[in-house]
Design a protein around this nucleic acid. Structure first.
Lengths: 107, 107
DNA sequence: ACAGCGCATAGCCTATCGGCTATGCATCAA
DNA sequence: TTGATGCATAGCCGATAGGCTATGCGCTGT
């Protein structure tokens, strides 16, 4: 059972998939057909990628007749932000430690 | 020529590689041997991953005798933060647009 | 009822990737 | 000088991932 950042990194690593997510962020809800039209890949591929994005919690789908509308779930990016902040935090702590060390050496 | 977030996502997508980067963030500079000791994979694999991390600008190396010390370059995470902010921004704009629409409809 | 449309699923093929072992190359110690 | 150590490189291999076509299935409209 991989943790959240792992799933997000793996899901967003593929350019085609990330492009789909970006379009949903920029342009809002879209049908599979609308997404396929400008995706540069076939419709089954788009459906597959959308399924993976959905599994990662990055999009939700809404069925309306024979169409499926997808939209971005921006909250799902939170673990990514957390991870980045955490890494930056460690960096900051090490910097503080260094400062402390220098201070102690100065005395 | 892939753009910056693409390289970062692809580089950080692999768990082993991301674990190496995390250790360098948490614990600071480490030699290849020290990293290999707890990486769970062979030394050549560690070297390979460090090379990929270096290419992505996420780490730098410092040669000292026959050892190579690697350390995290946290600034390289900036494009990731930018990308996330951009996506969040689009979300916010769409939300504002919706508010405007509702306001106009209300009149 | 039936033909067409929108999307999902199945199955296949190829390329890439992440792991390994073997080896090379420099540096340090004896 | 010679053997050992630390890391990088080369070459191989199986698994996975992302693309395709073919097909299934439910909804729509005639």
């Amino acid at each position: 059972m991989p943790n959240a950042p792992d799933v997000l990194f793996r899901t967003l690593a593929d350019p085609t998939r990330r492009a789909l997510f970006e379009r949903l962020c920029r342009e809002g809800e879209k049908t599979v057909g609308a997404l396929t039209a400008r995706a540069g890949v076939s419709q089954p591929v788009v459906s597959k990628h959308l399924g993976i994005l959905k599994q990662a919690g990055l999009v939700r789908d809404r069925h309306e007749g024979r169409q499926t509308h997808y939209s971005a779930q921006l909250g799902a990016l939170a673990p990514l932000v957390d991870w980045t902040s955490e890494m930056a935090g460690f960096w900051q702590n090490r910097f503080n430690d260094l400062e402390d060390l220098l201070k102690r050496m100065d005395q």
